[in-house]
Computed example of a mutant assay.
Amino acid sequence: MFLLPVVAVALVDADGRVCVQQRPEGKPMAGLWEFPGGKIEPGETPEAALIRELREELGIDTEAACLAPATFASAPLGERHLLLMLYVCRKWRGLPRPLEGGALRWLRPLELHALAMPPADRPLIGLLEALL
C-alpha cells in the first residue's frame, strides 16, 4: 500500500465561516466539496505545500506562521492510502477565488454536514464544529 500525504486548510473568515471548494469536472470525485489543499511534492514541508496550493487554487497568499495544525484523517483511496493533514488559517492576503474551476462556498461548520464530501473530509467537520 502506498501512503499519499496531502494537506488541506479550513480558511476561517471573520464570521466563523469555513471555505470549501467544489472539485472540478474531469478530476476524481468531481462535484464533491472539499477543504482546499492538495498533494505534498517531494522535498516540500506540509506547510510549504499548503502555501503553494492556496496560491495555485485560490490565488491567495499566507505564511507558515498563520497555519495552525488541527487534525488529520486517514482513508483508503484505491491502491493508495490517504493521510490528510488539516490546518486552520484565519489570516491570508487576497480574495479566494476558484482558479482551477469548480465553485467556492463559505459555510458554518454545522452546514458542512449537508454537503457531498470525500470520505476523508467528512470526519474533520466535527472537530471544526468544536474548534469554531
Rank of each mutant, 00 (worst) to 15 (best):
E44K: 00
A48F: 08
P46G: 11
G101Q: 08
L128S: 00
V6R: 06
L104W: 06
G26P: 13
E79G: 14
L54Q: 01
Q21P: 08
I125S: 05
A30C: 06
M117L: 05
L77S: 14
E25G: 13
M117N: 04
L86P: 13
E100Q: 13
H81C: 14
R55C: 10
K91R: 15
S74E: 13
K91Q: 14
I125Y: 04
V9F: 02
C89L: 06
Q22T: 05
V7D: 05
E44I: 01
G78L: 10
R17G: 04
R80Q: 14
R23F: 02
L104A: 09
A70M: 12
R97M: 12
L82Y: 11
A103S: 15
A65S: 12
L83R: 14
G31M: 06
A49T: 02
G16T: 01
P98L: 07
P96K: 08
L50Y: 04
V20L: 13
A120H: 07
D61Y: 08
A14N: 14
A103G: 14
E63V: 09
P109D: 06
A114F: 09
R105T: 05
L128H: 01
A14R: 15
V18R: 10
E34F: 03
P24I: 01
P36K: 00
G94K: 05
K27R: 15
R90W: 09
A30H: 07
L112H: 02
R23W: 02
A103T: 11
F35M: 01
C19H: 05
M1K: 13
Y87P: 07
H113K: 09
A75I: 09
V6K: 08
M117S: 04
P123V: 10
I60M: 08
G101Y: 06
G94D: 07
R108Q: 11
M29H: 13
P118R: 00
L4P: 11
P69K: 14
R108D: 06
E53M: 00
P98S: 10
G78K: 06
A73G: 04
K91W: 06
K91L: 13
E79S: 13
A10G: 08
W92S: 07
K91M: 10
R23A: 04
G78F: 06
E111S: 00
A14I: 11
A65T: 13
A30Q: 11
I51N: 00
L107G: 02
V20E: 00
G78M: 08
R80D: 12
S74W: 10
V20A: 03
E47C: 06
G38K: 01
L115P: 13
G16H: 03
A8G: 08
L82V: 10
L110Q: 13
H113R: 09
E79D: 14
A8K: 04
G16S: 03
L131E: 12
C19P: 00
E56G: 00
D15R: 12
A75V: 11
T45A: 09
R122I: 09
L83H: 15
K39E: 11
A8Y: 03
V7M: 05
L50K: 04
